[in-house]
Every structure is written in structure tokens, then in C-alpha cells.
Nucleic acid binder design. Structure first.
Lengths: 200, 200
DNA sequence: GTCTATAGCCTGATAGAC
DNA sequence: GTCTATCAGGCTATAGAC
């Protein structure tokens, strides 16, 4: 929510991260230079080194910032009561909405899955994804006792994310209509498919 | 299938592409230098410019090479008769096997979805994915008249690919057992979920 | 905390010998 | 077709003034 220009000196570090996140999301670690970031922030590249020891540390902080931010939203999407199916539908809808609203999180996640080294992925697993993952797995256990809950949990998230991921390609394939990329449509499709699969 | 060293002069261009593909798959366009490729191929960086006008062209040729190669396998996975459900199960199993056997194709695809510009993605859509996409959509139409066939086709592929994609992260999350990443397990899970969803 | 200037290395790409 | 040598420019990171 902080959109102060760097000149006001309020949380310069956070401001740098905020400007760096969309750059890294769009072009990846090696596709963004410290000069690119300095330009986006509005200060010299040398000044960045006052706030971060090196590029790697800046990138790590940016990814962490983006992920911890969104993790709260995912946690909220999992809150609330009702039947297992009702909670699934609510989670899918809210999660889809979250991913649609901020593409940076999703892109950074895909990039980390491709580029992240073991240490970084372990860190993300422990500090960001552990809690929501456990919650989705618990939900999956309720939904279908005869399906592997870990694989089902993965599929819930995957059905949503894959729609966003393939959009740039599906744009050029036949039969595509604009509604295919509306969050509500994506959520409804994923929900329908999952609910049918777990209804025995 | 060609594994001749460059020195034998048999299809040097193809040999370069073969060596470049895993590099680009692992580190992306900006993560691989012409010198990296020259080292892998066993010739000087300058020599690469005899076969390709610039790095961009080499990358494009490498991606095309990798994709056209695999498209044939996907086409075969879609061949054959039987009921719609039987063809779905066979496709999922063979497609999963294909993705497991050669991670480069999958990683390059994910990278293109993140990095590919409009022109490149249009080219890939027309020249590589159009035919198999249409076949999976046709299968989806048979499977469930009351589901959007385009979204269902996307989900079929996504359920498989997302398992591979998230493996590096799931490694560090609880409840994971080795079998979750075996192709047969992934295919069975995706098939089960899909068959249940389309069985009315 | 931010700047300018710059070190030292790596980059894509070219020239010209063989 | 491949090599060595090289260019011009971009890269990360540092030094030191303010």
C-alpha cells in the first residue's frame, strides 16, 4: 500500500523491493540488472548497495516480500466454515481472484520453481508455503478419503494456476473466448471439475 | 539420436542445438551466454556465428528443435481407438511418460510461457501446438458435453505438468513420498480425477 | 544515504588468418 | 568452418566525496 517516492525517505528498503518485484517477475533474476532496478526506483545503482549487500540478497528479499505478502491472502482464503465442498469452492474462488489481481506473485513462483536452488526452495517451503499447504491438504483429506490428499491438494492449486500460465499461448489457439480468462470462469471450471471428482 | 561429436562434421548445426537445449532449459535465455554454449559444443564462440546470425536466432532454433521433436511423441500419444475414457487414460499415461523422460521440453515450455514474446508464442501455437491441441479438445468434447472442452483440454495437460513443475518445492513439504513423483503415480492420479469428473 | 567515477570482468558480436 | 584476437558496451560491485 506504500507508494511513497523514495525521496520521502520512508522505508526506502521496502520501496526498492516494491519496485524490483515486478521487474524480477517479468524478466527473471538474470534478466534484470541493478541498473534496471535503480532506474525504476529513481536512485543510483550504487545507492542500492547501501540497502542490500549484493544483487542476490536484493532478489531474495524481493521474492520473500512478494510471497509473505500474498501468503496472508491465501490464509484468509482458507478461513471460514461450512462443508468441505463449500470450503473448497470458496478457496478456489478467492485464490483465483488473488492470482488474477497480482500476476507478479504467480510469475515469481513459476520462476522460483524453474530457477530456485535447493536452499531457497527449502526456505520458501518452510516460511511461506508450509501453513497454507497443510491447510489445503487437510481440506483434501476431508474431500476424498480414497484419493491421495497431497496430490489432490496440488491439483486444486494447479488447476487454477495452469489456466493463468497458459494464457499467453492459448491466446493464439482456436476456440478461445475472452471469458476463458476471467477469474470467475476459471474458478468455476476448477471447482466443477474437483467437486465432481470427489463426489462419490 | 545423433550424438556425434562436432569434429565429425555431421550436422554441426543440429549438434549445437542439441547441446544448447539443456542449457537454455536449465538457465533460460539470459542465463546462458554464447561462451557457455561454445564450451558445451566444444568449439569457439565465434564459430557459432557461422551457423546462426545471432544469439536470438540460435535460441529460437533450439526451442523449435526441442518442440518439434516432442510434438511427434504427443501426436502418437493421441493416436489409437477405444472409448473416450480409454483414449484419455492412454493419452495421460503416455504424455506423462514423455514429460518425465525429457524434462527439457517441459522447462522450455514453462520458460516460453513466462518469457516468450507475442510473435514467438504465435509461432509455437501455429507450428507446434495447434494439431495436438485440437485433438485433445476433440477428446474433451467427447468426454463431457456439459464442460467447456477448451478448459477441460487445458486441465488434462495441466494436471500432469503441474506435478512436475512443483516437485522442487514439494520436496520440502511434509507428507511427500517418493511415489508422488513417479510418472505412473502422476498419470494415475490425473486420470482418476478426470475420469471421475466426466463420469455423469 | 546518495552521489559520481571507476575497477574488473563478462557480454554479444566482428575481423581476418588458416 | 574454425580459429585467435579484439572491440564496444554492459555487468556487479567498490571507493570516496558530500
Amino acid at each position: 500500500m506504500d507508494v511513497n517516492p523514495a525521496a520521502t525517505r520512508v522505508d526506502t528498503r521496502g520501496f526498492i523491493l516494491q519496485q524490483a518485484i515486478p521487474l524480477f517477475a517479468e524478466a527473471g533474476y538474470s534478466g534484470v540488472s541493478m541498473r534496471d532496478i535503480s532506474r525504476a526506483v529513481g536512485m543510483s545503482a550504487a545507492a542500492l548497495y547501501h540497502h542490500f549487500p549484493d544483487k542476490q540478497a536484493l532478489y531474495l528479499a524481493a521474492v520473500n516480500h512478494a510471497f509473505v505478502d500474498k501468503a496472508e491472502g491465501i490464509r484468509q482464503a482458507l478461513a471460514g466454515g461450512g462443508t468441505a465442498v463449500a470450503r473448497l469452492e470458496r478457496f478456489v474462488e478467492r485464490f483465483t481472484e488473488l492470482m488474477a489481481k497480482d500476476p507478479d506473485f504467480r510469475k515469481l513462483l513459476h520462476r522460483e520453481l524453474l530457477d530456485g536452488d535447493v536452499t531457497r526452495l527449502k526456505l520458501l517451503a518452510d516460511q511461506v508455503f508450509l501453513e497454507p499447504y497443510k491447510a489445503v491438504v487437510a481440506l483434501a483429506k476431508e474431500l476424498a478419503v480414497d484419493l491421495d490428499p497431497y496430490m489432490l491438494a496440488n491439483s486444486v492449486v494447479g488447476l487454477v494456476l495452469f489456466c493463468f500460465e497458459t494464457e499467453p499461448l492459448r491466446r493464439h489457439l482456436p476456440g478461445r473466448i475472452p471469458s476463458h480468462d476471467r477469474p470467475a470462469t476459471i474458478a468455476r471450471h476448477a471447482s466443477t471439475l474437483l467437486v465432481r471428482a470427489v463426489a462419490r
